[in-house]
């Protein structure tokens, strides 16, 4: 079980980092999604892996799963979902306005063409 989880998280992270290093927007978005999956799994196992145990303390129950990481993961999932959506929208707008789909396109020297 531990080995399976470790390999899974490792593979997701490696793929995510690789995609983030590509300099086009779409792979970067995918890479960030993979990284956030890896993070969620990682946070999830931060309270140790337990099988078939209730996530709540009760009189007489000696084996229970840590409920806190599960709550954290829920928050993290919502946030990363929102962020990915925002990033995609931004990427589409940048594509239409700048005509560039490389994430490293502009140089700092450019002056912004501000709509006034």
């Amino acid at each position: 079980m531990e080995v399976l989880f470790a390999v899974l998280i490792g593979a997701l992270t490696a793929a995510g980092v690789y995609l983030c290093c590509l300099r086009q927007v779409f792979p970067v978005v995918l890479g960030l999604s993979l990284l956030s999956y890896a993070t969620n799994l990682f946070v999830f196992v931060a309270g140790r892996l337990t099988l078939g145990a209730p996530p709540i303390w009760e009189e007489g129950v000696t084996r229970f799963a840590d409920p806190l990481p599960q709550a954290l993961v829920l928050t993290a999932i919502v946030i990363s979902f929102g962020m990915t959506a925002l990033l995609v929208v931004l990427a589409i707008r940048a594509r239409f306005e700048a005509g560039a789909e490389r994430s490293d396109a502009p140089a700092v020297t450019e002056r912004p063409e501000v709509e006034r």
Binding site: C20, V25, V28, L32, L35, S36, T39, N40, F42, V43, A76, I79, S80, M83, L86, L87, L90, A91, R93, A94, E97, A98, G99, A100, S103, D104, A105, P106, E110, R111, P112, E113, V114, E115
Partner: peptide, 26 residues
């Protein structure tokens, strides 16, 4: 307010900070 240079710079800012958030959670 939009604008091409602003959007592309905001993209980079956002990607950097999303990677930062990932590390934060780890």
């Amino acid at each position: 307010g939009g604008g091409a240079a602003r959007l592309t710079n905001a993209m980079q800012y956002m990607v950097v900070n999303l990677i930062g958030s990932t590390l934060f959670l780890f």
